[in-house]
Simulated assay, not measured.
Amino acid sequence: MTSRSCAQPGCSAASEPDAPVALCGAHLAAAAEWVGEASGVTEPLPAPCVACGSRLGVTYRSGRLCAVCEWRFGDVADGELAPPRVDVVYYLRFGERIKIGTTANPRQRFAQLRFDELLAFERGDRAVEQARHRQFAAWREGGEWFTASPSLVDHVALVAAGHPDPWALYARWRSEALALRVS
């Protein structure tokens, strides 16, 4: 294997043999730093995010953001204010049935329920929940439980599309509500 010279003008060092571009180690490091500043570097936060509790952040030249909810690390929420209310319509699977319900406190609500899997969150209150109940009324089994019909399963998949973790989406909504209240 023949060694190549660094492609950076004026640099006479040998390029790194496995690098995708002919740059020496110093110039590869400089390029990586530049990309990190422009695109952000994912790394642990020094302390949990005040909005969602995540420890994962993205560092930019301008500062750090929570990787989950995008709260600016270091911004302080007003501790005297109650947490923001974020109403969600939730979809829970239990066997071959799906529950369509609503809550402003999903963790507390789910502690009261028996289910196999949280399928999705949809931003909305009782009006949205009632619209979903009417939409899928033909498959209602009683209360808020519905047969997992193809149309309901498709709807849940559409609501969940692009959001593999419903809790991360909920954390983002709470962070947005908190940021709107603080600004």
Rank of each mutant, 00 (worst) to 15 (best):
G53C: 04
T102L: 09
E70S: 13
C11T: 12
E122Q: 15
D78M: 11
P164K: 01
V89P: 10
F136S: 04
R109I: 04
Y60H: 14
G124R: 06
H133K: 05
V159E: 10
I100S: 07
F121Y: 13
P46A: 15
A31S: 09
P44H: 13
D165C: 02
E144L: 03
A179K: 12
A161S: 14
W34V: 00
F136P: 00
P83L: 06
L158G: 14
A13T: 06
F146A: 06
L180Q: 15
A51C: 08
C66T: 03
G142K: 09
A179R: 15
A120L: 01
A161M: 08
T2K: 10
F73S: 07
A161K: 12
E141N: 03
E16Q: 12
F94P: 03
G40E: 11
R174Q: 14
C69P: 05
R109A: 13
P84Q: 04
G57K: 02
I98E: 06
Q130T: 15
E144M: 02
A67L: 11
E16V: 12
L92H: 10
A157T: 06
S15E: 08
A131T: 12
T59R: 15
V156D: 08
E43I: 01
P46V: 12
F146R: 03
G142E: 03
Q108R: 13
F115T: 12
L180H: 14
A30H: 01
S149M: 02
G95N: 07
E117I: 04
F136Y: 05
P166C: 00
D116M: 02
S149T: 03
A30V: 00
R61Q: 14
T59W: 00
S3V: 01
V89R: 11
G124T: 08
L23P: 00
P44A: 12
L158A: 15
D18I: 00
S12C: 08
A111Y: 05
C49W: 07
V86N: 09
A51D: 08
R126Y: 08
E16W: 03
L119Q: 06
C69Y: 04
A82M: 12
L119M: 05
V68H: 12
P48C: 08
D78Y: 10
L65E: 14
L56I: 13
K99H: 10
A157V: 02
F73T: 01
K99W: 03
D75G: 02
S62G: 13
R85L: 09
